[in-house]
C-alpha cells in the first residue's frame, strides 16, 4: 500500500471521528490543527485506524507520533 492510498483511507477515518466531511489531511497537521483532537478522540482514532488497516499499534508507537505524517509512516511500516 503506498502512502497516497494510506492517506485516502486515513482521511476517511479522520472525517468520521471528527465529524467534518470536508477535512483534508496534511503531513504536518497536529492535534492543534483540529478542534476536537484531544487525548480521548486520539484513542478513538487509534482504535479506528487499527480496524481500518487491520493492524495493532503499541502504546510506545502511539506516544511517538507527532503529526499526521508520522501516522502515515507508522501505518505504512505495519501494513507492508
Amino acid at each position: 500500500m503506498n502512502s497516497d492510498e494510506i492517506k485516502t483511507r486515513l482521511t476517511k477515518v479522520f472525517r468520521d471521528i471528527f465529524d467534518t466531511p470536508a477535512l483534508e489531511l496534511r503531513d504536518d497537521m497536529t492535534a492543534d490543527d483540529i478542534e476536537d483532537w484531544d487525548s480521548l478522540t486520539h484513542v478513538d482514532l487509534i482504535v479506528e485506524v487499527e480496524k481500518e488497516f487491520k493492524i495493532k499499534l503499541s502504546t510506545g508507537e502511539v506516544r511517538k507520533m507527532k503529526n499526521v505524517g508520522d501516522f502515515i509512516t507508522l501505518i505504512g511500516s505495519k501494513v507492508s
Partner: peptide, 13 residues
C-alpha cells in the same frame, strides 16, 4: 493500552 493512554476501563467496542 487504552487504560494507559487515557484511563478507559474497557475496549471501546
Amino acid at each position: 493500552r487504552l487504560w494507559d493512554m487515557c484511563k478507559t476501563f474497557c475496549a471501546l467496542d
